[in-house]
Design a protein around this nucleic acid. Structure first.
Lengths: 255, 255
DNA sequence: CATCTCGTTTCCTGAGAGCGAACAGCACGT
DNA sequence: ACGTGCTGTTCGCTCTCAGGAAACGAGATG
């Protein structure tokens, strides 16, 4: 199925290992036979990989089903903890959500894509938990645009080249020039806006966390479009957002 | 160094892959040469594995250094989200911490070991964040004992056989019979106690979350030994703990 | 400009990844 | 009890490809 191994410079057996992991992630646990069928591999091959994974606790066997193990959680938390900005921002993001009574997020970026690393919704209508740990395009939401706006031009274009500008809703910016204009606006304004560009019904504003001239992350306030109106943003939310970001940047510098 | 590949039933190349990951975890990022030296492998070998890891975003290259990437976070959060008990318990654990003004934790177990999946310290003296995602022995803390107390006897002994009863402090129970007696007590009392058995200066109580007769997790209240006294436990904390666990068990059954 | 020291690439070789088939366990309908 | 159909696991065989050594290229350092 996924025969994108036109490589020679990486390791095939690793690719099959990752394919197994990916498959287990999608299926939330599966048997050897099912995996072998799905990935078009011999049962014995899959089995040997699973034994290796199990020995390192990346996979657990339960009732003859294999599923991903808590070792991934350990590693994942370790990676998150390496981001100083997470520790600097966490409590302040909590406070921001409490003050505004909307959802607040911390987004970091890696390799030209964004990821939600932390979020709270004091008004807990939705299970926002499912959003944490997901990748997002930088061009299609306020946090991403806040980050892009403060990256060097050549980095922005290399990101566009690599990932393109796929549309998430009919409001997504899919044109290069339009995006660059928007980024200039964001720089002037100090914060970015998201008018249902990635999720219908959702409005959001975001501002970047900058250290040593580089945007390492962005903080977002997000909420239903009817609550997060343009005037509320101008009158109240934008100010609170910028205050929060200032606090976070300060804490990044001073322990 | 770690030549424990007396296997034949698993895959050697996977073992080196995991060794690389483990090494990157410990060093918080390293170069090809450093990894090759440390693991006693050829540079080219390490490099090819890194290319594979990088393609799948499990590793990122930054300033010629490789470090673990956010894909681990994605996978880790995914694993956590598979535990229904996490979603059922999160808010209630928050409330428990707020009520008692101590730290509260959710611990799950896998393969005879426990792991902190969630925790809050309303009294935020310590950076408890570093505890999340770490493995703990079940015999050496209150949460683990709460879980063990409600597992079938044969499962308990197989766990002891597999992991032993290593001492964490001078108060750790290291004797099989003593442990089994303690577990019987825990069953009677309804909650387990931790009198500086894994961490000096720390007192804790814990009670298991049971569904379908199986303990899937445990909830803990933990705090400095001088604050979490025996009489406060009896007068107040134990009751609040058991209430919280009841609520969680209910929420596990009803949506 | 020479000299380290990185990361990356190239090439070769024999260890071992991957395969197919046989084996073992369990749960069913008879 | 006895097939029958499903699992997961193990056993050899074979030819691929993972791993090693050494060359290459790119920055940094003196």
């Amino acid at each position: 199925m996924e025969n994108r191994d036109i490589d020679g410079r990486s390791i095939k057996s690793d690719e099959t290992l990752f394919a197994i992991i990916e498959c287990l992630k999608r299926t939330n646990g599966a048997g050897v036979t099912e995996l072998a069928d799905r990935l078009d591999l011999a049962k014995s091959t899959v089995h040997k990989h699973l034994v290796a994974l199990e020995r390192h606790r990346y996979v657990v066997k339960e009732d003859g089903q294999y599923r991903l193990g808590l070792q991934f959680f350990t590693a994942g938390i370790h990676v998150r903890n390496q981001y100083e900005v997470y520790h600097a921002a966490k409590n302040r993001v909590d406070r921001l959500a409490a003050e505004t009574n909307e959802a607040a997020w911390l987004i970091v970026h890696e390799n030209g894509m964004g990821m939600f690393v932390y979020g709270v919704a004091h008004n807990e209508a939705f299970t926002f938990d499912s959003t944490i740990g997901t990748w997002v395009y930088l061009h299609a939401n306020s946090a991403g645009k806040a980050i892009l706006a403060h990256l060097p031009d050549e980095e922005v274009s290399s990101i566009i080249d690599r990932h393109g500008l796929p549309a998430q809703t009919e409001n997504t910016i899919t044109d290069r020039e339009t995006l660059l204009d928007e980024l200039a606006e964001v720089r002037d304004r100090g914060y970015a806006m998201n008018a249902q560009e990635d999720l219908r019904g959702l409005h959001a504003i975001a501002s970047p966390v900058i250290t040593d001239g580089r945007p390492v992350a962005a903080v977002t306030i997000a909420g239903a479009a009817n609550r997060v109106t343009e005037e509320r943003i101008e009158d109240d939310l934008s100010e609170r957002l910028l205050e929060a970001v200032d606090d976070i940047e300060l804490r990044l510098v001073y322990g």
